[in-house]
């Protein structure tokens, strides 16, 4: 289940980096934003669980678009350090606003799934986790289809491969960047909205998620959707193995040990440049 969530986070981040060359430090905050919106819609406004999921994701897309429009659009052509500093600032600001609104106390969200697990042969799976996994897979497939088959997806890939030539083809770079950032942010918010009801929601939850998303992107190779997908599942798998066979305290460390290994042995990531972005 976590593999799907990790893959969603990684794909969002790798799209934004690959196409816009922006190291997106707000990614983790979009993730916790999704989770808090889920909390607000389900627990405070008592909306339907599934409707809330859609709304939280849509708001994530909108928030991403606002960040792109207000912050990143002014920084076009600025060097990567400037952009990084601004994004770090946005990250800190967003996290503190979250803390101000929701306080530091962890929140939990009730999910509508039966508490008795689904038992298949000798394996039992919680319904809620199965649902998270299925939706994550759907979103990943949808992202692939969007990037691979649609006009805006083609414009994204063209911009990634050769920005100037894409402009010569009449691609509107501003619109493409806006769509990319909104899509990446929406995926992060969806990941948070899906996982919030499974665990608890806290203001700092985005930090570890963002760290892992960066790890996945490094693992898969910067700018590779396929790499981020494989990297996401691989990281979750290694974490489970580490937690199971060593100690659950090492769960989060396992992933980072893997990254160090990948960086030492194959610094460009698992997927070579050839397959990037679609």
């Amino acid at each position: 289940m976590l593999g799907g969530i990790y893959a969603l986070l990684g794909i969002g981040l790798t799209l934004i980096f690959g196409i816009m060359r922006v190291v997106n430090f707000t990614h983790g905050e979009l993730y916790s934003f999704g989770a808090y919106m889920m909390f607000m819609f389900v627990m405070l406004l008592h909306l339907d669980f599934f409707l809330s999921l859609v709304l939280a994701t849509a708001l994530g897309v909108a928030l991403g678009a606002v960040i792109e429009f207000v912050l990143l659009r002014r920084l076009r052509g600025a060097d990567i350090d400037t952009t990084m500093l601004v994004m770090i600032g946005a990250w800190i600001a967003m996290q503190n606003v979250e803390q101000l609104i929701w306080s530091g106390v962890a929140k939990s969200i009730t999910s509508p799934f039966p508490s008795a697990p689904l038992v298949l042969g000798g394996i039992s799976v919680a319904w809620s986790r199965l649902f998270v996994f299925a939706v994550a897979l759907l979103l990943i497939a949808g992202t692939y289809a969007l990037v691979d088959r649609t006009r805006i997806g083609r414009a994204m890939r063209a911009t990634f491969q050769d920005g100037d030539t894409a402009r010569l083809m009449g691609v509107d770079i501003d619109t493409t960047y806006l769509a990319t950032f909104a899509l990446g942010s929406g995926l992060a918010a969806a990941a948070g909205a899906l996982l919030g009801p499974v665990f608890v929601v806290t203001p700092g939850m985005g930090d570890l998620a963002a760290l892992k998303a960066f790890a996945i992107v490094i693992l898969g190779g910067l700018g590779s959707i396929l790499g981020a997908t494989i990297g996401g599942f691989l990281l979750a798998f290694i974490e489970e193995l580490g937690a199971g066979y060593l100690s659950s305290g090492y769960r989060d460390a396992m992933g980072f040990a893997l990254i160090i290994l990948v960086l030492l042995m194959r610094p460009t990531g698992l997927i070579s440049r050839k397959d990037r972005i679609g």
């Binding site: 083609r154 414009a155 890939r157 491969q161 050769d162 894409a166 083809m169 691609v171 050839k274 990037r276």
Partner: peptide, 15 residues
């Protein structure tokens, strides 16, 4: 566009 197919490159021309 090196990682796009020949057809996709032509489609970009008519973007």
């Amino acid at each position: 566009f090196p990682y796009m197919t020949v057809l996709e490159n032509l489609q970009m021309g008519s973007h």
